[in-house]
Each structure stands twice: as C-alpha cells, then as structure tokens.
Design a protein around this nucleic acid. Structure first.
Lengths: 227, 227
DNA sequence: TTGACTTAATCAATCGATCAATTAATATTC
DNA sequence: GAATATTAATTGATCGATTGATTAAGTCAA
C-alpha cells in the first residue's frame, strides 16, 4: 500500500472539486453573487456537500483563500526564498558592496519577471479577481492572504530595496516596492482598458516580452537613480 | 422667475439621491449583491422608483457609470485639456525642442499629481471599486467608462510620452504610460496590503507627499532614461 | 455493523419586478 | 383668477423565482 496517496478518498476529491469550482464562481462576481447551487453544479456535486465539508458558504469562501495561498506560495515561494537567503547574508560595515548590489538588483528583476508571467497566466485571472476584491473590501479572507504570502513577500523585497538604496528610509523603500509592484499589477487591475488602448486582444508571449523589457528597464532606472 | 433653476423638480432630486446611493451600494459588493431595497433605503426613497426612473436595476447601474464619467471629467478634464492643447502645437522637423520636452514632462507630472490626489480622496473609493470591477469582468458599463474618459486620456498621455521619447513606438509609449499609471493605481488596487505593510492607517496629506515625491521621481527617471 | 459520505426534498427569507391607487405639480378652460 | 383636466411622481402591496441552510433517508467502503 502507498502511504502518500490513499487509494481514493471520496471526501478529498469532493473538497477539491468544490474548491476549484468555488474559485471560479466567487471570482466572477464576488461572494454574494455566487450561489451554492452554481458552485455545486460546476463541481458536479450535490449542493448540500458545501455545508457538510466546509460548514457553509462562508467556510468555503475562506477555504478558497487558504487554498489560494498554498498555490501562490508554490509559484513564487522559491524566488522569495532566494531573496531571503541573499538578505540573510551580513552586510559589511562600509555598506553593501557593488557586487552585492548587482546581485540584489538581479534578484528583483527575476522576481519581477516571475510575477509578470504569473499575472499573464489565464489561471491567474480568478486569483487576481479574488485578491483585488479583498483589497477593496477586506474580510477575514484578507488576513489569510496577508499572513499567507503578502507579508513575507513585501518584507523581503523591501529589505532588498534597502540594500540597493541604502540612503532610503524603510518607508521610502516600501513606496519604491509599491511603485514597481504597480507596474506589474496595472496589467491586471486596468487590463481591459489597456488591452483596448493597445489594440491587443490578449497578453501573449509577444506582449509579455514587450512589457517585461519596459518594466525591467523602469525598475533599473528607479533602483539605480540617486535622488 | 428664475429660468436656470426650476423651483424644485421632484424627479431630479429623486434620481440624484438614487444615483448617489447606488454608487455606494454597487461599489461595496458589486451589482448582484446590491439590492434595490438597500439602495432605495439609503436614498430614502421608495424602491419602486428605481423601476420608474431607470427602468430597473440594470438601468440604474448603467446610469451610475454615466454619472461617474461626468464627475471624473469634471475633475481631470481641465488637465487633460491642457495636455491636448500642448499636443496640438506642431512639432518642428528636427524633433521636439528641449523646451518643448520639459513642458511635456511638467504636464505629465501635473497629471500624475492630480490623479494621486484624486485616488486618495475618500469619495474616490467607491469610484475605484466600480471601475476596478468593470475592468475584471466588463459589462456594457465598461464601454461607457472607456468612451466616457479613458480613451481620450490614454490617447493624449501616450501622445505626450511620444514627444518626450521620440524614439519610442506607439506600443512602447503606451506601456510607459501604463507603468506610470500603475504606480498610482497600486495605492488603490493593493491599498489594504500596502497600508498594513507600511503601518499606515490612512493615506493622508503626509502620505500623499511621500508617494508624490517618489512617483514623480520615478516618472522622471523613466521618461528621461535612454534605453 | 460502523462511520464517512452523499442525496433529494423542504424551510423561511429575500430577490427584482410590477401593479393599481394615491398624491403633487402643471396646463387648460371658463 | 378660480375650477378643472392632465400629466408626472410616489406609494404600499404582491408576484413568482431564487437564495443558504437543514434534515432524514440512502449509499458506500472497511
């Protein structure tokens, strides 16, 4: 017998189906607009199972965000880990060396690229909708998101920016992080307007390249500017 | 008798009350979650009047976005008009003069400042929620937004960026515009996470100053960089 | 047989829409 | 200018449809 994969756990597959259906339904029009029946139908499952497995609609909603955090950590966790490792190296008394600085900039560039590719992924559409909505009108689910991956990511990247720009205060560095994040986020938050303005019908490989080139150049210009 | 202000038009005041209540209710949790009864109650008006004045819930929703466009044009229209006037000046054969370029950069800076102050305005919270949601899952309302103010604003700003960076293609210039827009938008789209990370409890005058300084510096670094 | 899981059915509550009846404002007539 | 007719606006009530939750009965593997 295999320990790691139980033969077939009916409950687990049902929970998984409900979670994935719930992500799609909650993402489309929000918590209130999604009906348990629509979620159950998409999951090809009886609607009473939402109550049985998650205690109710709200329980399912929160479980969705737990699930989301795990997925996101799986995608960006490794890069954040690399940055964290670099941060843990002690900084010399005279300030970071030039080589250290270049390494840090390269790591930020790598994170930027990973995030842009993540944001362009069609699967991320639902994720972005869920997260954006929680940012506007936070519920308990936002705490799950913040503690689940946002807090660590923001802290680590801000720390790295402070190594690249030692003259910056903690607050200034955080604003720099926000301004780089915004350049990526905008292609989700203002996606429809930008697609229409640019005459694009999707953000495919060619579009990702164009965005990537400009945002990387911008990040470099911002991180290296002395003001 | 005064011609410009009719004594009291019952219908107009009712429509106005319904529009303002609808903005708040639709913004909170979206179209489906807002109930006609909640909107009517907030407007202190009978709920049957939604059908009478706007034809139904959807009619009210679309009217909200018409109203929104007028409000936004009133706020950013003048600055966009200035930029448009500057754009209409013919460009010399040898390319824009250095003075012209500085004027254009100053205009973009001014627009950035106006937008950041607009985004920080508490009244804009509902506006941002409505617009962000339409960007994620566009309905007829998005067409109203795009034709109502987005199209012109994006076109004008992109044209100005092309004067500042003549080497850029139309597409590159649009991406530059997006990346500057993103630095402003992020403080709405990722507001809750950033407030928590920064330890701010609100975006007040002091915070606006800090953001403004950094974003203006970033915009300058991006617009002036030769890559 | 036991316990985890699933099903169909039903509950009160709320939804958007609609209607006839009523009131208020305006236009018309004498 | 007072009385009347006409239109616009508002009200309270009711419609069928859908909501989340719950329950008792049924299914399945160990």
């Amino acid at each position: 017998m295999n320990d790691t994969t139980k033969p077939i756990d009916r409950g687990d597959t049902t929970r998984r189906q409900l979670l994935e259906a719930a992500i799609a339904e909650f993402a489309r029009d929000g918590f209130h607009a999604a009906s348990n029946r629509a979620i159950a139908q998409r999951a090809q499952v009886n609607q009473a199972l939402i109550g049985y497995h998650f205690g109710g609609k709200e329980g399912l909603y929160l479980a969705v965000f737990q699930f989301l955090c795990e997925e996101i950590r799986g995608r960006v966790g490794p890069v954040v880990g690399l940055i964290e490792a670099h941060l843990s190296q002690p900084v010399p008394n005279g300030g970071p060396t030039a080589e250290d600085r270049e390494q840090a900039i390269a790591l930020v560039e790598r994170l930027v690229e990973g995030m842009i590719r993540l944001f362009a992924d069609p699967q991320a559409k639902s994720w972005a909708q869920l997260i954006l909505r929680e940012q506007q009108e936070p519920t308990k689910a936002f705490d799950i998101l913040y503690e689940g991956f946002m807090c660590r990511a923001l802290r680590v990247v801000t720390g790295t920016v402070r190594r690249i720009r030692p003259q910056d205060s903690q607050e200034q560095a955080s604003i720099v992080v926000a301004s780089i994040l915004g350049q990526i986020l905008v292609f989700r938050a203002a996606r429809t307007a930008l697609l229409r303005h640019l005459g694009w019908d999707d953000i495919g490989p060619a579009q990702i390249d164009a965005i990537l080139r400009q945002v990387k150049a911008n990040a470099n210009a911002i991180l290296r500017s002395k003001d």
